[in-house]
Nucleic acid binder design. Structure first.
Lengths: 211, 211, 211, 211
DNA sequence: ATATAACCGAGACGGTACGTCAGGTCTTTGA
DNA sequence: TCAAAGACCTGACGTACCGTCTCGGTTATAT
């Protein structure tokens, strides 16, 4: 996850593979109990049964560690085929909201995003590990909708890319804002209202574009 | 701003009014230069030409201070009448994006939101100082649109409130996500695309509701 | 002991006087239990009931702290008047040996001397706090011996100073070597033998000089 | 030097003999550059082109290693026959002072002596490798002086042994104190003064004893 | 005018976490 | 079996910031 083994090193004791998993799990556990700002790397090391130096050998700091720990949470997202675009969106938004309801995601995600405003490398890491990784859901949803005839096929590639980005910003932004800032549950009712607006908007905007 | 002076205190030296402003300004300055995580209260006190104790006498900690410092930034938002609902939204969204482009807002806002996931009182403070305070823009925009006949009038009060919240989550969430997570500029092109989708969605959803 | 209050500081909370004494006592205690190399400043701070920062605010490091802690041990040396030069020397050498027999002196003194071989400032501190401070004993002993007619009066000042230094090197060096390197007790028998040689040597060398 | 290989080991790869010399030389080099307290075994291993494990296989720790590295320095001492007891002593004292002027001796010797105050085994190692090894010089000097008639022959064996120890403590102690504590050069003038006192003291004390 | 009371600056205080470093041990590949 | 490499755990390092406290001193109102 964190580094693609730049030098394969033929000699010396190899790094423990188990340590990585233990550290990430311990990080999530600490996020749940303490939140991001009270999470300390010493504590994570202790929970993982690992020395602090081992932790620093693999991650350069708290932010990078938390990104990796949180990123794993979002990999369980998937887009089940529910028959219509609206239903598909509702399904994935509910999953997304469920993940954001977990304290390790809430506290960790926003904190690293905040940090990333002053750290270009961190922003890239977040984008690579979390954001771009989940855009697959938008792409897949659109393909299905196009196959069903709910949305018109793509004509312009850069236009297509911009639309994916826009949808992602709207969906992810709205859900995050609902869950973290408004601090209201993104329950079925809210998700249905939101999806209604979104699908209608997409359809109208799509028709505008092609017409 | 911070607390409504529970006991008015008739005697003793009154608190310096100038100090409050100096501290908030120093806080924003420090946010620009250092970002949230490297901002220290000692440093803010020094910048403001004030003792640390003076600072702690007025704010209980870093989070509360930053909320107040950031909240002032959003008070300059206004909704100029541009003739149509879409143009009004575009105008306010551009203003919002301009504020979010400033480093003191970026770094500070997300950080306190992250902290608020584990601090109920802080969340309330954010809501009172920032979120609810700006919902006026949504309310005013809707009134104008209804007066122009772009949106149907309200019938159900709780339904109305839910819609305001939804719109706020969508607008604020999308812009924040665009600016901070995607880290792309919310320029006129993006804002136009976003507004198109939003207005179409609202119109369609509104028609659904009244029909 | 450590600093002669360069700036009397009119403002701010004054430093606790009790802390200094507690820290030096704790340092000696730790020297007894752990020895120099296993003594840690964290441990000293804990023993003294003081924060580590308080300790670092007053001493720049382990070496300086130990010098001050050990220096106090030697202040109890005195030169009782026993009637003859030889008896006076025996008396003070026995006292010196008694101090060197204490573990806090043994371990601490040699360690800081070793460190001082690479630290000019530390060497000066040792000289000022310990060595020069105890040369008073040599001076006083010589005065008495001269008053009794056991030694001839001084004629050349720089010669006089060199002689004091030589005697100090011989006395301190021999006792330290006996106690720490040879690790044999500097008991009455050894002290008598040593004093015999020294007094005879001084008398003969003195006679050489004046004759 | 360090241990007499208790089991000669008939099988497996034999230990590199060159490594021992390289390690001791690297240790002295590191003592010169860094001093005892900043010398690290990792660094010594790197300098010697050897793995840390190889080093630990041969020495149990830093102290033992430094004792062996320093001990070799003193083996070059010898007692040239200059015709009189005083001249012989002057010669060897000047050699001793020259060795102590070298940084690897200064820093290393005192440090291990300091450590030895809390480590019986280390004290024995120092005594065996350094102290007792150089007492040969005192013995040889006395023999010559007796042959020349400068000192009376021995009568009592234990008395003889005590005298050798006393002389060694006085000579070694004074020179060490002069060089390391007083930090003044043990130049020819100082050595002459010291020798004058010592020889006169020995002669007078010896006459006392036999008379 | 003179208490009284809360304010102010400065800075020391007891803590906690930081990120680094050295000490020794263990685990790998290779000679 | 030893050697080299390097990851491992432990624990101390010296620094920085936290939030509290103790000073000497300054403004206000309330007598």
């Amino acid at each position: 996850m964190q580094s693609s083994t730049p030098a394969p090193r033929a000699t010396g004791r190899p790094r423990s593979a188990a340590a990585d998993a233990a550290i990430l799990a311990a990080t999530r556990e600490a996020l749940v109990e303490l939140g991001w700002s009270k999470l300390t790397l010493s504590d994570v090391a202790t929970r993982a049964g690992v020395a602090k130096t081992t932790l620093y050998r693999r991650w350069s700091g708290k932010n990078e560690l938390v990104v990796d720990a949180v990123a794993e949470l979002f990999d369980e997202l998937e887009l089940p085929d529910r028959g219509t675009l609206g239903a598909d969106i509702e399904g994935v938004v509910l999953q997304f909201a469920a993940i954001l309801a977990r304290p390790e995601a809430k506290s960790g995600l926003m904190a690293v995003v905040a940090e990333s405003t002053r750290d270009e490398a961190l922003r890239e890491r977040i984008r690579a590990s979390i954001v771009d990784r989940q855009k697959r859901l938008v792409l897949e949803g659109r393909s299905r909708a196009q196959a069903r005839g709910e949305l018109p096929p793509e004509t312009d590639e850069s236009e297509s890319s911009r639309t994916v980005d826009l949808i992602f910003d709207v969906v992810a932004g709205a859900v995050v804002h609902r869950c973290l800032v408004s601090a209201e549950p993104a329950d079925e009712e809210w998700v249905r209202s939101f999806t209604t607006v979104l699908v209608a908007g997409l359809a109208a905007a799509g028709n505008d574009r092609v017409s």
